[in-house]
Write a protein that binds this DNA or RNA. Structure first.
Lengths: 186, 186, 186, 186
DNA sequence: ATGTAAACGAGACGGTACGTCACGTCTTCTG
DNA sequence: CAGAAGACGTGACGTACCGTCTCGTTTACAT
């Protein structure tokens, strides 16, 4: 009965927004520019996403090209691989983008949800491996797995956003070693 | 020789900015409003702080009623106290402010320096205690102290900025316990 | 196709600007105040007129309740009427406005065009009458009409902008008499 | 007992102001910049000239490096020379400066006086020659000399400030011829 | 085929903030 | 006291967004 939405419009907008946010960060993401770049009227964007924040929410949902990971039977190795992969992924992403997302998340609850969902995958993956490690007894301490996960992943964000130090593969290994203890003699 | 800056101007501006940021968040911090509220000309503010970001940096630097800390001879207790205090301090500060600072830091090098300097104090304090703990043998693992510090402090920021989980005293204790191992029976 | 400009906005702005310029002169014409007085956003004004100068140009263009003139078959009388009318019109306009327009014209080419277009009408009218006078032999001298026009109109601006002497009807008559020669005895 | 004013300060300020006004026009004349360029404190300038306008007044008084002229016994030639010289002088001066001076003159009475004094010299010179011409009978018409002067000089300013047409020597000659009539065959 | 309802493009508009640039006054210190 | 140095208040400028609005123009679908 009514005219259906043109699917291409959505993707063009998202693509333009992605390009913009990549290039200038969330702060520098301008609705006018996105509209122009996408060859779309601003009205059209607002008809679909009621605010810039919601557009970003949608955008993030699209971006979630996450750290792929297949668990093996060696938790230590899995953990090392995972943490290293996360570190690499974070390093590849412009820091300002991550920081802007965190900032937007802190301001707008709706964005918060979606940004948290963005990171949740990897957090869950680490949690699974930590649980497995604990099950097979690789993790000695009697600590809640959630805490261990935070201590493996948190430092990565901490360095990135707070201290500004680099995220090397070596650093990732150190984190794992610190949690699991030194490798058994071989 | 020249007319000195009126110290009261600075404090009035900072006070107004603090009030504003408290009331409306970083987002809602308007230079015009700060100027008006402080009874000061906007130009005067800009003469001292070249941008809004720098004003906020100064503001935080001022607010640095930092985590006071006197080391005792019990590193475990010191560490617990310190981490708990940092967690409390972070909790007391609006999350969006911290996130915005991180974002500003990621964008503008100048701001980055200042913001990093802001967190550096507490980072250093933790480092000192960790070193002491290592010296007296409380820390079992053979890990670089820098990594341990990141694993104590990083998770706090991680929860705050990324997962959004709360920073309870209990959580702080868990972090310490995870690093130092369970308390010896006594 | 697109949302048309609200004509009322234009007229309200122009009206406010006219009132302001009347009351405080070109110097005291503030865009903010015009916007407020017109009940219009400042951005809207700038969307239509890219600068204060252009707004004033438009304003004058609007005010061009120009020297209406119907040629008769008596060139001498026409000329006298025209020059007198121009003098009256110049006298009625605040001198500072005319001077500021000239200044703006000298600085910005774009404004220059508009301002010259503003005066061109009357210049053309005088030219036509001079040509007619020359055709019917009222003008004795063998001079290019353009020069005669300048000698009829130029002195008006000269007095206004340079010597500051008044533009009386008498003076206008003298200018014409100087060019056409004394009236034939009648 | 009191410290006398350093005469050099005044000249340095005037020199700087002259340079500035030459380069950027009256509008672009900034007191801060003059102070800096003159290596003088702004206070010092304001101690001597209570406002920018007054400084310009003083400056103009200094600039009056006028059209030199020695009358001969041939009024027609004198007039041609004079008008040509004035035209040349006007052409050599940046139009925007002349326009700005006119504008300033229209706004500030004090500046008006001094600007009028600036042009008065040449006006007077032309008046003298016209009177002489009238005395020896070169000027046919029975017109007040003041009007003739305006018709000789006014068109120059008119072209410069209003129509924007060039001031060629030819044009100057045309003006004279128009007033004096064609040269007698000789 | 044709009417209709919604999608869409284009851009006007109100608003809020930003950071910049003058002017002229004031305050302090030095020669 | 003159002068240097610059802080300060005031007020304007022009710019960049945001989100809403008002048009006219398609376009799918239901009759």
């Amino acid at each position: 009965m009514i005219r259906p939405r043109n699917a291409e419009v959505g993707s063009r907008v998202l693509a333009a927004a992605a390009a913009e946010i990549e290039a200038r960060g969330y702060e520098g993401l301008s609705m006018d520019r996105v509209a122009e770049q996408a060859g779309v009227a601003k009205t059209t964007i607002y008809r679909r996403w009621p605010s810039k924040a919601e557009l970003v929410v949608a955008l993030i949902g699209h971006l979630r090209s996450d750290v792929p990971f297949e668990p093996t039977d060696d938790p230590r190795r899995d953990l090392t691989d995972l943490v290293t992969a996360i570190a690499a992924n974070l390093t590849a992403t412009p820091t300002s983008l991550i920081a802007d997302l965190a900032a937007a998340a802190a301001r707008e609850p709706r964005v918060g949800e979606s940004v948290r969902a963005l990171w949740a995958d990897r957090h869950r993956a680490v949690t699974a491996v930590v649980a497995e490690a604990q099950r097979v007894g690789v993790v000695l301490h009697d600590v809640q797995p959630a805490v261990l996960v935070d201590q493996l992943v948190g430092p990565l964000y901490y360095r990135l956003l707070v201290t500004g130090e680099p995220l090397t593969p070596d650093y990732a290994r150190s984190l794992v070693r610190s949690v699991l203890g030194p490798e058994e003699s071989r």
